[in-house]
């Protein structure tokens, strides 16, 4: 079981095999818990978040299409949405972008380095974030990890809405350029 590819693991998840969930958790449980903890800041809530996320993944595994994205990106998207759901204190049904349907395949479609180890990926992504101008990084982090809307970020930072959106786009495009520029190194 430990040597299964993510694609094979996804097939077993879709077949409803509980052992596949155990394997998935062994692979990504700590990463999922780290993300939940980053968003909620609460250990007990993070446990609940990860539990609910993995249950959702098991229920909805048949929707996973390995041709459209990596398993780990999907897992993390589900964990993020579950964590934001808890953090914002709103039931999932009231937040259209937080239920699993909101995690459409396109949301997790492009993990360009599905075979890169988590530690290497972490260092790459952190380097990219650190390379951003502070004001752009702050907006990106508040949006992604804080789950704040642009209006909420504007209120918090006392910035016009248009400035928040502009910084968010610029930051995300720079991240994309940074990742794209490193793709050759990683492939090589």
């Amino acid at each position: 079981m430990a040597e299964l590819s993510d694609e094979q693991l996804a097939h077993r998840l879709a077949a409803g095999q509980p052992e596949a969930v155990a394997e998935l958790y062994d692979r990504y449980g700590d990463l999922a818990y780290g993300l939940a903890l980053r968003i909620t800041g609460d250990a007990a809530q993070s446990e609940d978040v990860v539990q609910e996320a993995f249950v959702k993944i098991w229920r909805q595994a048949s929707r996973f299409d390995p041709q459209r994205g990596s398993l780990r990106a999907w897992v993390m998207a589900v964990v993020r949405n579950q964590a934001l759901d808890v953090y914002r204190g709103r039931p999932g049904r009231e937040r259209r972008e937080l239920d699993l349907d909101g995690v459409s395949p396109s949301t997790w479609a492009c993990d360009p380095w599905p075979h890169v180890s988590a530690s290497l990926l972490r260092s790459r992504v952190r380097a990219a974030l650190c390379a951003l101008p502070t004001e752009q990084r702050r907006v990106v982090e508040l949006s992604y990890f804080g789950g704040l809307t642009c209006r909420e970020i504007g209120d918090m930072l006392e910035l016009p809405l248009g400035t928040v959106k502009s910084r968010l786009r610029l930051g995300m495009e720079k991240l994309h350029a940074h990742f794209a520029g490193q793709e050759l190194d990683l492939d090589g």
Partner: peptide, 30 residues
């Protein structure tokens, strides 16, 4: 492009060792 970029952001966080009981909780729930 930006969705692909966003999909990478969660990997910036540090892995944190989840409490050992969490694995059992999930499997029991399933």
């Amino acid at each position: 492009r930006l969705r692909g970029t966003m999909a990478l952001l969660p990997f910036a966080v540090e892995e944190r060792t989840a409490p050992p009981r969490l694995r059992g909780r999930i499997l029991s729930r399933l």
